[in-house]
């Protein structure tokens, strides 16, 4: 039996001659998964197919083992926090979340209790009786998060959940997402702000021009990108001396001196790391810091989206 919470099998979506999502096959395990892509990459379309709001033009999108389109039984088990507002300004936050929870099949009193509890979880209990029209952007985000979770879903989809949030709200939302993942649920977070995703997970789906460009752990994906040498930055007291030692190594592609540091380009970082201390020792260099500036989400994103442009 598959352990994937979400599966796309050759899923595609087109509008006339415009292909928004092109033949995407993927699976999403439990925990937090970041859905990355530049603006217009197709991530919102893919996300909307995953939450059953768009019917795939081709292929199938399954959530919890069943096709999601037109499937109320599965829709009951998912939560969705959309990017756009779409709320009734005249309702209070509590009224909105209660009504939306009722639509999941809970009685009014149960739905209200769940909504109140969820406002507590997102730190918005003080504002839950205020009209939505009076909410700040950050409060709206938290109210939307509350409506996505009040019915206790197994899979939660969050579209740009941190947009417009102040630092305190950001911290709270990140904590909530981490808690959901820790409990064993599946959370898909769509964002084009890479550092937001990086604070939540290293598990990504990268979409570009409607196609799935990468899927999996960001560091492992980076390791597989061989067209771009890995960069290793070494901060030390005698950078030129260390550069002289390292440049002779056959797996080193280039060495750049950058102030009190050197940046070493290599195709095999695993072979480079043991060599650096030896070279430093023989050159009498004191190493202060060792970092890998392109072994991160931004670099992977840049490499995989730039190459196809």
């Amino acid at each position: 039996m598959s352990t994937a919470f979400i599966e796309c099998e050759h899923a595609a979506k087109w509008y006339g001659q415009i292909i928004a999502v092109n033949d995407v096959t993927l699976s999403v395990p439990g925990g937090v998964t970041g859905l990355l892509g530049p603006n217009g990459a197709g991530k919102s379309t893919l996300l909307k197919m995953m939450v059953g709001q768009l019917r795939p033009s081709k292929g199938v999108v399954k959530v919890l083992g069943s096709p999601i389109w037109g499937n109320p039984q599965t829709l009951r088990r998912i939560g969705y926090c959309p990017e756009h507002e779409g709320t009734y300004e005249d309702l209070t936050g509590l009224e909105m979340v209660t009504a939306l929870t009722e639509l999941h099949g809970f009685g009014h009193d149960d739905a209200r209790a769940r909504a109140e509890k969820m406002f507590g979880v997102v730190d918005l209990k003080d504002g839950m009786h205020r009209r939505l029209g009076e909410y700040s952007k950050g409060m709206r985000q938290r109210a939307k998060l509350a409506q996505a979770m009040a019915h206790d879903p197994e899979v939660v989809f969050l579209d740009e959940p941190l947009t417009g949030c102040d630092p305190l709200a950001r911290v709270r939302i990140l904590e909530v997402i981490a808690d959901l993942a820790r409990e064993g649920r599946c959370i898909v977070v769509s964002s084009h702000v890479l550092h937001e995703i990086e604070t939540m997970t290293s598990q990504i789906l990268l979409i570009h021009k409607g196609q799935l460009r990468a899927e999996g752990d960001v560091h492992q994906i980076r390791a597989l990108i061989d067209a771009h040498p890995h960069k290793v930055r070494v901060e030390c007291d005698k950078p030129r001396a260390l550069a002289e030692k390292l440049v002779t190594q056959e797996h080193v592609v280039a060495v750049t001196v950058d102030g009190e540091a050197i940046v070493v380009d290599t195709r095999t970082p695993d072979r480079l790391y043991p060599v650096i201390p030896e070279a430093a020792k023989s050159a009498g260099v004191y190493i202060r810091a060792l970092t890998s500036p392109d072994d991160n989400m931004a670099a992977v994103f840049k490499y995989l989206t730039e190459t196809s442009s």
């Binding site: 439990g30 959901l180 993942a181 820790r182 997970t201 598990q203 597989l224």
Partner: peptide, 29 residues
Amino acid sequence: MSAAKANAAKQAKVMPAKEGTILDRGYAP
């Protein structure tokens, strides 16, 4: 996309999920 990169993306796709990210699994539907 070069063949190497296509291969890279393919390998990444079949990679297992990072272990140890889910700690308590206290959730019950």
